[in-house]
Design a protein around this nucleic acid. Sequence first.
DNA 1: TTTAGCACTCCGTTCCTCTGAGTGCTAAAT
DNA 2: ATTTAGCACTCAGAGGAACGGAGTGCTAAA
Lengths: 349, 349
Amino acid sequence: MELTARKKQILKIVVESYIDTAEPLGSKAIAERMPEKVSSATVRNELAELSDMGYLEQPHTSAGRIPSAKGYRLYVNELMERKPLSDEEAAQINDALRQELKGTDQVIAKTGQMVSSFVDYPTYAVADRTAAATVRRFELIAVDSGSVIAVVMLSDSRVKSQLMHLSLPLEAETLPEISHLLNTHFTGISAEEMNAHLMNLSDQVSGQWFLLLNQVVEYAAGLLKESQQHEVFTNGASQLLKFPEFRDVDKAHDLMHFMVDSKEQLPVPAGDQSMQILIGPENVNEALKESSVVVASYDIGDGMRGLVGVVGPTRMDYAAVAARLSYFAESLTRMFGKHQLPPKENEIQ
Amino acid sequence: MELTARKKQILKIVVESYIDTAEPLGSKAIAERMPEKVSSATVRNELAELSDMGYLEQPHTSAGRIPSAKGYRLYVNELMERKPLSDEEAAQINDALRQELKGTDQVIAKTGQMVSSFVDYPTYAVADRTAAATVRRFELIAVDSGSVIAVVMLSDSRVKSQLMHLSLPLEAETLPEISHLLNTHFTGISAEEMNAHLMNLSDQVSGQWFLLLNQVVEYAAGLLKESQQHEVFTNGASQLLKFPEFRDVDKAHDLMHFMVDSKEQLPVPAGDQSMQILIGPENVNEALKESSVVVASYDIGDGMRGLVGVVGPTRMDYAAVAARLSYFAESLTRMFGKHQLPPKENEIQ
DNA sequence: TTTAGCACTCCGTTCCTCTGAGTGCTAAAT
DNA sequence: ATTTAGCACTCAGAGGAACGGAGTGCTAAA
């Protein structure tokens, strides 16, 4: 039994109708939408075979057909035509991108917000560091006799700072020496190595110095650890509740908890792919096994990537989401690559 | 018709039962729970009067009674006995508080998380600045010929920093002069005043200088504006879905959207109160009119307050939530006041 | 290979009854 | 003046029968 062109045609009709209405589609309705004129009986024969092959399912004997996960997969791989963005939409996205984004954290957060407002699904956004971060440079600024500002510049160009209270007052003149110490011994290494180094120095430097050193190194090590596990931003999670598949509160609860409270184990594009679509049971995460995710990555320079994912029911509008998401990701990558704003004229693929 | 002790007794029983089960309570069940023996007929007479007075409602003629908003209000004001924390709970809270909190932003965020895990309701947490923030001090650090780190210390002791890319290279020696300029002209004033000052300086300083000045001032002004409208952290929002009053997804949707996506117009304690309970229609926000909020504020030094609120159905367990929340708020205030950790021994009121 | 025809299945709706919890009222008891 | 027993009444929710209709699978003819 092979997958003829007509079978694919039928599958496409079923998938797209189900995405639109969330209702099973019967042979008669399908026949009407076929480009060549066929009878509903013919369609019924094809449907039976498509069901046997696992591309379609029946909620119950006397209902129409709905796509299975396998059906969606075929649709996504072969059948779907990416819905091109309208000029208006592309213009809106470009407008959104043109607003100034400062600081990688903010880029990540804003991107999720933007995408969520352009596709009508919840999104998540997270940073994806390709290389482990290290400290590139330390700086200490005297505030008063009892406190010092520690400034830490990381290898990915992020700059973080914090006020430190000293238990023992220090002379302002010693600060350059301490920061020299920090810059020579604690840059370019991992958090673990930093802690080890600190132990070595503990008897080589004076107690007062060590207290401050300790505070700063601990702070920096904390930052490095923090960079490993990024904050996940989610947006528009409440939109889940508008989908009929989540009318049942119990069904909604798990996914909602995952999206707004736990936010762990979110899908990232596998290997070298810049975009990936995960359909229902293809998701490893239990909470997502009845939903689908479209996730894209984009480059934001300094060896950093951003990740933005769209979450929805398995009948999500893959064609629209994939087109918008890749347009977004490409625009962002281009923007950060060339360090310039997206083009005024729309250039849609 | 006055509110006799027995009427209050009955009201208390109804409220507490309804908080527990979400089911209306009938005269017979009430009679059984009364401390003095009374017949169900007597209770019925009292119930009729309590309904007339507006403290109780009937979902339909042949159902038991449930509390009205007015009923909850009386309960909260007069009838409820704060459920004391068990030693175990107090110990858990103290443990949670003992973990080191660094940076006011993190304190706010963590507090929401902690509270959410101790009361089984969603929470929100936000900072509440009593005085408008200004910049206390600027500092510029040369990185290379094309970039500079701007460090801004705010009046509330927060320190923020960002990497700036220069369009025109600057000599490192000029940085101290520029930061002197910043520190003399742009500290202690509002964002609007900063922008005005900047305009004044535009023809007094050289173009190169001005470009950097402009970047730094814009960054700082942005920070000040940001401080006005604080980020709201919410936790455990998905727990809403477990309450029977939100079994209807449409009911849940509005509140959920409010909690996870819009987060605007959240209640803050009025006037000088450190804790406030807002019941159903007492909330000004439309999305909260069928829910209740218990919100407390706590002091974290530097003229900053933190706000943490608990959101739930009107039948929320006020006694438990209020007790836990005020214990939390008091512990935090004490902690930041004395700059020390909470006591090892439990000291429960 | 396609199509018309037909018996069959089964979901969802409507309409009914029935049950039980709870009420309000009246009249007797305290 | 309160409290209580008794009783008729109300009404939501459960359970079940009947029905309509959408959709199927199968057979036989085109």
